[in-house]
Amino acid sequence: MAQESVKSSSGNTPASVPSTMAAVLLTGHGGVNKLVYRQDVPTPSPAHGEVLVRITATAKNNTDRKAREGLYPTKGKADTTSFAIGGEATLTFPRIQGADIAGHVVAVGAGVDTARIGERGLLDFNLYADTRRDINLTPDYYGHGADGGYAEYVALPSEQFHHIDNPDLGDAELAAMGMCSYQTALHMLTTARIQAGERVLVTGASGGVGTALIQLCRIIGAIPYALSRQEKAKALLELGAEAVLYRDDMDGFADQVRALTGGAPFDAVMDLIGGGMTDQFIDSMIFDMKRRTTYPRLSIAGASGGNVSEIMWTRIYLYQVQIFGVSHGTRKEADQLIAWIRSGQLKPVLHAAFKLSELHRAEEYFINRDSHYLGKIVIVPDSQWQQHGAPYALQELT
């Protein structure tokens, strides 16, 4: 690659970086063939208020696949469309995906202190519509409405790239604690007003949001119960789950809950599955309303089991079930998560790392992940692989 100094917009030349970089470009809606690895993509320059980050790891999220395949319909069930909560689709092609970015500041734009150069950080992945700290009504994110982390460099808002210097955390582990999963999880809990001592069912417990929910419940004093597969039970219990219910054994689900809780219903359900299981999740909260002290709450941030659920509305309004749809989170919640990461209260659940040039393989592994999958996978630029990726490379089972 040709080399040149990338100047900040203030005129400083604090670091020499390549004029072009390796990146994976999403070229349209479709399969993994729409992801094209190139090594001649222009390196971005930091604008006013931005930092230029040399990327060392980016966590993979299910939203990458859903955006690529156009699986965000809000009207027709079979629409092929991208995330468009702000009124119009902001996903344009080509786009560099990847929301949960960890890396090191190598240059700054005007208005940013040059003392930031060299800092390691983690991105708050949101493209906020305004400066409000406690509400985010039209969420969008890096890797969708702006280029993200499946590359060697990215320009980001300085205020959203948070310095994390914990020496016990590798960069890949830091990326695995990215905001896309953890902020979504925290927003599920805060929106549903979860309190200490409440019993909370976490569905889809082995994924990024699920493992985050289990940890966050314990931090705030709630009691998480996991729904997953039997072979993942030991790891989920070690992570903090009070008990594990099995997704492939849902017969008499409410009775199973009674047996685990001493007859008490769940106070709330954090649902990432949806589909035909939704009714059973509601059952687990309403089977003995006399034992409740709060309204049943269903917080929804995913639909891995199906995008359409059939529910009798009489069950919702007669039992006063409160339903919350959750997409992303707020600046205030991001700040809280960063504080917990810095203090060591949150721990990474890193499954494996893949090279950027092997993103097709990572996508296929993610889509077809088996019963041993737990937590997050991260994507590491080939140029950073030996230091930041190789120690976490996928260990194939034999």
Rank of each mutant, 00 (worst) to 15 (best):
V349N: 01
N61Y: 00
A353K: 00
T43R: 05
D251E: 15
S19V: 02
K347R: 12
D147I: 03
G305D: 01
L216S: 02
D279S: 11
R132D: 15
Y317P: 05
I117G: 00
G111L: 07
R229N: 13
G240Q: 13
I214V: 11
Y295F: 14
R193C: 12
R291W: 02
L346Y: 12
S304L: 15
S9Y: 10
Y225R: 03
P18S: 09
S10L: 08
Q160A: 04
M250N: 10
S206P: 06
L260D: 06
G197H: 03
K66C: 13
A212T: 04
A185V: 00
G208S: 06
L350S: 04
P94S: 00
Q320F: 11
T131N: 01
K290N: 08
R292Q: 08
Q345G: 05
L122G: 11
D171Q: 12
G149P: 03
L35Q: 01
K232T: 05
S158M: 04
L201G: 05
P46R: 00
L156I: 04
K60N: 14
G302E: 06
M277D: 14
A226N: 12
M289V: 08
Y365E: 05
T92E: 07
G344K: 07
G149R: 04
A235E: 03
A243Q: 14
G305F: 02
F83Y: 15
Y373I: 04
L91H: 09
F324I: 00
L237C: 10
R247D: 05
S371Q: 14
L35K: 01
I338Q: 06
E333F: 03
D255K: 15
L245N: 02
R315W: 03
G70P: 08
R65C: 15
R68S: 10
T314M: 11
A196F: 02
A362G: 02
Y225H: 06
I323R: 05
S9Q: 00
V24A: 11
H29E: 06
H162G: 08
G262L: 06
T58Y: 13
R258G: 06
M179D: 08
T43Q: 02
I214P: 10
G145S: 04
G276C: 06
A222M: 04
M21Q: 03
H372M: 12
G170W: 08
E364L: 15
W385R: 05
F83C: 14
P167H: 01
V154I: 00
L26T: 06
E364P: 08
S309K: 00
R218H: 15
R193S: 13
F281I: 07
A107Y: 07
A59M: 03
W340D: 13
A129Q: 09
G275D: 02
I341Y: 13
R361K: 15
D113V: 07
P348W: 06
S16R: 12
G305V: 09
G263F: 09
